[in-house]
């Protein structure tokens, strides 16, 4: 269970995230929806301890991420928006490195190499990889620890259609295995296809948290899900003014 309690983050004079609270249940797929700069990435990054909260706290299974980073991060696997690996390392070395960092048995690396089709490419340097292969390696690294919680920051940004398809299959597979998944996106159809619940981010605030089914029921008759999102944005702007 993930619990974000009154999380706020300020960069200089700007509040990137302000008073954000929500909970994510075990096995749930939760999407952060919002335009660029709405606070999705800041919130997601703070959940793995990359961003230090200005106030508030984040609990993973009741344990504070800030106070116990090692213990809480064992439950999580995070994939940044832009995945980068050292050019002069092979896929095998990258997987082995993360395997050793997480103290996983060597057999786990072997299994992931096979599952993500790197077994035949194990000697090839990452610098020779295509964008799609690097993404696949990123997903392999994310899947490596078999962590119960997956955090993915705009995973389909900059991907070609094949990469997007691969990512969706990855999410569905992880969901079937009972993983709790949080991902950020600004693509509404992605939320509709993959998420159970969505948190709508507008100007650094969490404007709403809704079940996808409930949203569909509410807005089906009159508007599209895009209109629903714009409704929240306008409502937020109205409240600010």
């Amino acid at each position: 269970m993930i619990e974000v309690q009154r999380f706020s983050k300020r960069f200089g004079e700007n509040w990137a995230a302000s008073d954000i609270s929500f909970q994510v249940k075990e096995g749930e797929v939760f999407a952060f929806l919002g335009p660029n700069g709405s606070g999705k990435t800041t919130t997601l990054r703070s959940m793995v301890g990359l961003t230090v909260p200005t106030s508030g706290r984040i609990l993973i299974n009741g344990v504070d991420v800030r106070k116990f980073p090692r213990e809480t991060k064992r439950f999580m696997s995070y994939l940044p928006q832009r995945v980068v690996f050292p050019d002069n390392c092979t896929a095998r070395e990258v997987i082995d490195f993360f395997c050793r960092i997480r103290d996983l048995p060597p057999g786990r690396a072997e299994g992931v190499m096979q599952a993500y089709q790197f077994a035949d490419l194990s000697g090839q340097y990452v610098g020779e990889f295509s964008g799609g292969m690097i993404q696949r390696l990123g997903l392999a690294v994310a899947a490596l620890p078999d962590a119960p919680i997956l955090l993915l920051d705009e995973p389909t940004a900059n991907l070609d259609p094949q990469g997007v398809k691969r990512f969706r299959e990855f999410i569905m597979h992880q969901k079937e295995n009972g993983k709790t998944i949080l991902f950020s996106t600004h693509l509404l159809h992605e939320v509709e296809q993959l998420a159970d619940r969505v948190g709508v981010f507008v100007n650094g605030r969490l404007a709403a948290v809704e079940y996808i089914d409930s949203l569909r029921r509410t807005y089906r008759a009159t508007t599209s899900i895009e209109d629903m999102y714009l409704h929240y944005v306008e409502k937020r702007d109205y409240e600010r003014n």
């Binding site: 793995v48 301890g49 980073p69 213990e71 991060k73 940044p80 980068v84």
Partner: peptide, 16 residues
Amino acid sequence: GDKGSMELLFAQPLVR
């Protein structure tokens, strides 16, 4: 180093 690789490293179960 590149932000993406630093983020991936610091997100592992370790301390800074």
